[in-house]
Simulated assay, not measured.
Amino acid sequence: MLTPMRAIWSGSITFGLVNVPVKAYSAAKKHDISFHQVHDADGGRIRYQRRCEVCGKKIDYEHIDKAYEDGEQTVVLTDEDFASLPEAQNDEIEVVQFVPSDQIDPIMFGKSYFLEPQGKSPKSYLLLRQALGDTDRTAVVTFALRQKTRLGALRVQDDVLVLQAMYWADEVREVDFPATRSQAKIGTKEKKLAAALVDQFASDFTPEEFEDTYQVELHKLVDAKLEQGESLDTAATFGDVTEESEGEDAEVIDLMQALKASLDKKRGGRKTAAKGSRSTSGTKTSASQRSDSKPSGSKTSSSKASGGRKTGAKKSGSSGGSDASGKSGKKPAKSAKSSATSGEKSGSRRRKSA
């Protein structure tokens, strides 16, 4: 089943007097896992805030303008300033050249967009597609997208017109590596061996056969941690907060309340044991107890479930496993449990002696 796409731009292709109404869609998407940043001690979400360095207030996007600094002075440009530029409202993809396809260096290519025909009749779209296919040429175009004038290439892929953004000529760097001008001689045998090696790997390009193995292993690692219960309460640590409580102080208070409630539930509300644990193990103990002090063996199982692959994390020593950042979150919980038990035993001895 095809994934629904959202158009990011609508306008028309123009070449001569021909007008082709189209909508543009991003041709590619990333498959990487998205991560949040959290505090390694308690798993609390790390948030970044936009604060003014003059008044110290937190600023919303609607009150943020862009500025250019030349070293001594700063010029502020508002949304109205950008909208006043002639090219800002241009909704045309203007064809300026039809060139042989092999004349465009692939290093100039950027992001690609699928173009969908619009209007009552797609005849002009089909005509342009046919012309490009018959002549084996690529249309060099100019267009405006997100307040920028861009250079692009218009070509055919299967039955669809594809707009491929291109770098401007002055954006492509010129390089001069001294080693590339070396006069080192390459022998005949070396050439033959190299040619034979290339011949062994010769094949037609089949992109679907390639797989992002890093992301596959990362998914396995995340799934293994979820299955073994090595997770945090999303509502307590990742939940969205309101504008009124989005400040750093409010977030710390909410997290501390969740930790204290978890400790009280785990220890049956015994304040004496709770105080003894906090004084012994500190913040990291509280964060680990919030996850109900799962056995440290679960991390070992997690490591086995992930196929024993090295994930780049540091070993956590005697705890038997580590999280994705290489920091152990279970060892403090163990010390907290022992301190709580010792606190209960000492209290029991005092009661007996009394």
Rank of each mutant, 00 (worst) to 15 (best):
G321H: 07
K284Q: 10
P106W: 01
H36G: 01
T206V: 12
P122N: 07
A131W: 03
T138S: 07
T74S: 01
G308A: 11
E69A: 13
Y48R: 10
G187F: 01
K331P: 07
D70N: 14
L221W: 13
D91P: 04
E190K: 04
G343Y: 00
Q215T: 14
M1G: 09
K189I: 04
L154C: 09
S112M: 05
E251G: 15
T142S: 00
S301P: 04
V222G: 07
T74D: 00
S322D: 11
D70S: 06
L115I: 11
G239L: 09
L126Y: 14
L232I: 15
A165N: 04
S346P: 09
H63I: 05
R267I: 11
Y68G: 02
Q130E: 10
H31Q: 14
T188R: 06
V252K: 15
K310D: 15
A333E: 04
T311C: 03
G44N: 14
D91S: 11
S328A: 15
I13P: 04
S262R: 05
H31G: 14
L163H: 07
S306W: 10
Q73W: 02
K331V: 14
T234V: 14
P178D: 03
Y48V: 09
V18I: 05
K299Y: 13
Q49E: 10
S277I: 14
D60M: 06
R351L: 01
L17M: 02
E190Y: 11
P21M: 03
Q147V: 13
A195M: 00
A131T: 11
K29E: 14
D176S: 05
C52L: 06
R45H: 15
A235W: 10
E171D: 04
M166A: 12
V162D: 09
D159L: 02
F238P: 11
P332T: 11
G16V: 05
S34K: 10
H63S: 06
V141M: 06
I33P: 06
D254V: 14
R350G: 00
L115H: 13
